[in-house]
């Protein structure tokens, strides 16, 4: 089974994230980039499926030149090859236009299955898997905490608030995974060395047949109107327990509409 894993480079999870003043997009230059954590689980799941039943794993990423670091990490974990969609015209794309660009890039890679993390830690929209399914016509199997592949089929346990649903579909399918699904491996030093020799294809808008007016800041249907810095943390309220600490706590929670 040939699998494409979509990975995204995001600002380091623990770094303070900023929007650029000029075009109100995420500032990716001034901060260290890392592979979106949930995508590590997606790469791991793809590698496990490949190790159990064969096929190839291709990493697909859309992002600036710097995103190649994230591609290299996925390759050093064990993916076979990578496709990097990189074009200045993509800068500022929102979720909808990103899904269009990724769907066009997917057309260039033969595959049975696409695996992604359920969301990215920068945008936290959690919509790309569903949008990709809609755009490509592939089955949508999201929030997977377990994936089983059969002959031309894929079955998942879909995580819900109360438990899980079993969902099955014929391939091609789009699967998004939650962090419960596995424990991602560390790359090995040999993997790092081998990654340098693995094929990496770079696609521009033209290469992928993407219409430039449908992507980027101008092509996006949504835009950031304005933004402001998070207000500084307010000092907390100290409640002295004089035998009534419990009820004061309950009153506070009720006043904040938390209970």
């Amino acid at each position: 089974m040939n699998i494409v894993v979509c990975v995204k480079q995001v600002p380091d999870t623990w770094a303070e994230k900023k929007l650029s003043d000029s075009d109100k997009t995420v500032d990716r230059e001034g901060v260290e980039g890392v592979m979106n954590e949930l995508d590590e689980y997606a790469v791991e799941e793809a590698l496990r499926i490949k190790e159990a039943s064969g096929g190839e794993v291709t990493v697909l990423t859309m992002g600036p030149e710097k995103a190649v670091e994230t591609i290299r990490k996925a390759l050093s974990m064990g993916a076979d090859q990578a496709v990097h969609l990189v074009d200045s015209g993509l800068h500022g794309s929102d979720a909808l236009t990103t899904s269009y660009a990724l769907a066009k890039a997917l057309e260039t890679i033969p595959h049975d299955l696409v695996i992604l993390g359920v969301e990215s830690t920068d945008a936290r929209m959690s919509v790309i898997p569903a949008m990709l399914a809609e755009r490509t016509g592939a089955a949508q199997l999201t929030f997977a905490r377990k994936v089983e592949v059969g002959d031309g089929t894929v079955k998942i346990e879909r995580q819900t608030d109360t438990g899980y649903d079993v969902v099955e579909a014929a391939t091609p399918a789009i699967v998004s995974v939650v962090e419960k699904i596995n424990e991602p491996r560390y790359p090995s030093f040999k993997g790092i060395m081998a990654a340098k020799k693995k094929p990496l294809t770079t696609l521009t808008l033209g290469d992928a047949g993407i219409e430039s007016e449908k992507v980027g800041l101008a092509g996006s249907g949504s835009s950031v109107a304005e933004f402001s810095a998070r207000p500084p943390k307010q000092a907390g309220q100290v409640v002295k327990d004089e035998g009534d600490g419990g009820s004061k706590l309950a009153e506070f929670l009720a006043s904040q509409k938390l209970v």
Partner: peptide, 22 residues
């Protein structure tokens, strides 16, 4: 074992025998 799997237990030895030749 995890530290070994990333290659740390053979890092300085020859690649011919599975080392990292560092």
């Amino acid at each position: 074992r995890t530290v070994g799997q990333i290659g740390m237990l053979g890092l300085t030895y020859d690649e011919e025998y599975g080392g990292g030749a560092q």
